[in-house]
């Protein structure tokens, strides 16, 4: 399932680049972040790519990390979606943003807020977060699946995927604050 998803993402990405070049609006696209990728993994990937320099191909990457390609691909896709790396002919290289990201020592994820907001479920969540209104990941999941965007066909699992992504990425990026007791997200205090 992961590789399936990856393929369609790559096609999306190509489409998006093509449309970018003709000035089409990004709103038509819903780029989905893979459900199980976490910040630590992307940060780790960027670090390794930086260290290996120009010699980073997929096989070498997998070798270095001791992970198999299946595990690695979604992480790589995410890094690409966030504009941190470029993959050309199987060679992984850091973008300028990726390089700055690698060198930053704290609050890295905040650096990529803009990139994050182009992806789902963050885009929709951000739209739902009208000032001081708390929302739950269930609402976000429902909104998205009504528009045909979902990570899983079972609603419970879909919601769990959205919840995981929101907790692990959006909070880190400072997009929302989260209350575990109520299970709801809202805009952080300094932005209300």
């Amino acid at each position: 399932m992961k590789t399936e998803f990856t393929r369609s993402y790559r096609e999306d990405m190509k489409e998006m680049k093509r449309k970018d070049s003709v000035g089409a609006s990004l709103d038509e696209y819903s780029l989905m972040m893979p459900a199980h990728v976490r910040t630590g993994q992307v940060m780790g990937l960027v670090d390794v790519a930086a260290e290996l320099g120009a010699l980073t191909d997929l096989a070498r990457l997998a070798d270095e990390l001791g992970d198999d390609i299946d595990t690695l691909l979604p992480i790589l896709d995410t890094a690409e979606m966030l504009g941190l790396v470029e993959v050309k002919k199987g060679i992984v290289s850091l973008t300028l943003l990726g390089s700055r990201f690698h060198k930053a020592s704290r609050y890295k994820i905040q650096m990529i807020r803009e990139q994050l907001l182009r992806l789902e479920p963050f885009k929709t969540a951000f739209d739902l977060a009208a000032p001081s209104q708390a929302f739950s990941s269930a609402e976000v999941a429902r909104d998205l699946s009504n528009r045909g965007v979902s990570w899983h066909h079972e609603p419970e699992l879909n919601e769990a995927a959205v919840q995981g992504l929101l907790v692990h990425w959006a909070i880190y990026a400072g997009l929302f604050a989260y209350n575990g007791k109520t299970g709801k997200f809202q805009k952080p205090e300094d932005q209300q």
Partner: peptide, 18 residues
Amino acid sequence: VGLKNFENVYPGELSGGM
């Protein structure tokens, strides 16, 4: 440790690194 804004999250929802 970089977990500002995570105060009210339960361990069950955190990744291993967190």
